[in-house]
Design a protein around this nucleic acid. Structure first.
Lengths: 163, 163
DNA sequence: CATCAAAGGTTGATGAAGTCAATTGTTTAG
DNA sequence: CTAAACAATTGACTTCATCAACCTTTGATG
């Protein structure tokens, strides 16, 4: 009940269409069509993300941080880059997560300006559970036929190819 | 540089796998694989959403509201449902958007408890521009072959089918 | 080597977005 | 008619986010 807005016939900005309708009955902007549907599905799913994070008593952003914070320690500024937000925002964010024992600040040896973030054991454990939960495909995907899933996977791989 | 965490081989929670590796070389959870890749692509794209909204001087949530607010007026509580947030949150949200002349509150005739939200002319115009902008597919999608796009579109239609 | 600009992180002020609990009006059920 | 239920708002409070100012450390450059 939410994504119908994007899938409409491209606002009549195309002079042809109806002249050669017989040769190509589909609208000529396949990328937008596919994108609109993809968007609708993801949008429907993302709506639940705050609730999903809340299952672990995390805010959406904290969940995001936990996900980014893999095995390797991360500098605060690098994390700010990942989150596309201001560095000063990360300070408070990490403050709260540190207070909850999920992460720790570790001063870098090479450059004493930078603080590296590391997961605590509790943080790593929670991260595992979170990732496992996020990996669960939504109904709409889980219900697809194997053939479709294979095709979808392969298309996504091509889409994500370096170039 | 962000989505590799989800695509890993399901954490060895499956007792088989390796016994019958020859018959099925791919991991046996196709849905998770497809989902992980889909998630990675969408996640990469969603990172830019705040910036996209900012192109129109909207917050992400305001953009979201504008998108939901189609031709038909919407009750505050209905909007709260769409946003999966508390009704009291919508009050302030709409206050700000009303102050900027994008929407207006209109008391319902049938039920004087409810306030219907309508787009102003300015709001409707901005909405058009916003939707047009959001409909632009990201590079990764736009670069796919027509064959892939058609397949992707059809798969997404099946995924989004009512049941 | 001394200096100075640039970078990493924090702080403080401010505002948007979110929650919950309590309130006011308005419907609707018993 | 009275009481429960509902729609929206208010107020208190937390988190996320920005910006400007600041401090420390690094690295260049004279």
């Amino acid at each position: 009940m939410s994504g119908e807005h994007l899938e409409r016939k491209t606002k009549s900005t195309d002079p042809r269409r109806r002249g050669d309708a017989a040769t190509e009955p589909e609208a000529r902007d396949l990328p937008r069509q596919a994108w609109a549907l993809l968007f609708e599905l993801m949008h429907a799913h993302m709506r639940n993300f705050p609730a999903l994070a809340a299952e672990f008593e995390l805010s959406p952003v904290q969940a995001h941080v936990l996900r980014q914070l893999g095995e390797a320690p991360l500098a605060m500024s690098t994390l700010a880059g990942y989150l596309s937000c201001d560095a000063s925002n990360v300070t408070g964010l990490v403050d709260r997560m540190e207070a909850r024992g999920l992460v720790a600040r570790r001063s870098s040896e090479q450059d004493r300006r930078v603080k590296m973030l590391v997961l605590t054991d509790a943080g790593a454990a929670l991260r595992e559970r979170l990732l496992e939960r996020m990996a669960e495909p939504p109904e709409a995907i889980a219900g697809l036929a194997d053939e479709d899933l294979r095709a979808l996977r392969d298309i996504m791989r091509r889409a994500l190819k370096p170039q």
